[in-house]
Computed example of a mutant assay.
Amino acid sequence: MLAPPPEGTFDIDPQSIPIKCTTKSDGSPEQDPLLTQEEGGYLTGPNASRKWKMKDCLRFLYEKLKLKQILQPPIIASILAMVLGAVPFLKSLIFTPDAPLFFFTDSCMILGEAMIPCILLALGGNLIDGPGSSKLGLRTTAAIVFARLVLVPPVGLGIVMLADKLGFLPPDDKMFRFVLLLQHSMPTSVLSGAVANLRGCGKEAAGVLFWVHIFAIISMAGWIVLFLNILF
């Protein structure tokens, strides 16, 4: 270890920092410190301060928008798949059967076939104490089921009809319109239960999914009859 000299220490007095002398407009000397201190550190130039400001801004947006809760693994995988599929070079490199990296796609397809059974097993494990073991309560669960199965389908019907009026949908393709309408009346995906399980609320999500799928048997039958009467 280095020891301080006998006549002093390693501590530097701010008053003893070397200064440079410049001349003011009136001819009097102006003294500026060679090293500028700010909050315990030294400035290295405007680029460094700009870099730190950008980092602070990005960190603020990341925390304010709660991107950690939004960017879950399924969403990240979906965005990555859309990017890879939209670029022709990457698509021919990964997704085509004769691509050099098609083994990666083949492995993902094999894992994807087992995804739904694994998710159902996880949901079943969360329902080990019954669907009423969640902390949401009867009113909250009933409101979620009502909103998903009764309120969402009319909104989807209005969106599809508006898109049809504006010419966004293929003409004379009633089956395509029926699929668009049907997806709004479907129960919540079991994948949402897996995402909720990552956030530590798997029991609540499993209870809601249980009741949504139970009552969807009745609601889907009614909405399918209505959609068929509208389209055909």
Rank of each mutant, 00 (worst) to 15 (best):
F60W: 08
F104P: 01
T105H: 08
L61I: 09
L34R: 07
I70H: 10
P88I: 07
L90V: 08
L101N: 06
A77K: 04
R139D: 09
L58S: 05
I119Y: 10
I116W: 02
P97G: 09
I116G: 02
F103A: 14
K55S: 06
L93W: 04
D56T: 01
K53I: 06
V83L: 15
D106V: 01
A122W: 04
P73A: 04
G124E: 05
L80T: 14
L90I: 09
L90H: 04
V145I: 15
F95P: 01
S134E: 12
F103C: 11
L120I: 15
G112P: 03
A142M: 15
Q72S: 14
P97D: 09
L111C: 13
D129Y: 12
K53F: 08
S78E: 09
L93G: 01
F89M: 10
L120P: 08
L138F: 13
C57W: 04
K64S: 09
N47S: 09
P74E: 05
L35R: 01
L71C: 14
A86H: 11
Y42F: 14
K53S: 09
L120S: 13
F146T: 12
A122S: 15
T44F: 05
P97E: 12
G41S: 10
P33L: 01
L127K: 02
F146N: 05
S134T: 10
T44Y: 05
L34H: 00
T141Y: 03
I75A: 12
G41R: 11
P100Q: 08
S92D: 14
F89L: 13
L34I: 12
Q37R: 05
T44Q: 07
A99R: 02
D98P: 00
I119Q: 11
P88C: 04
K55H: 06
K66M: 07
W52Q: 12
F60P: 00
L123S: 07
A81S: 14
K53Y: 03
K91Q: 12
M115A: 15
Y42A: 01
I94D: 05
D129Q: 14
D32H: 10
R59T: 03
L71H: 06
D56V: 00
I119P: 03
T44H: 06
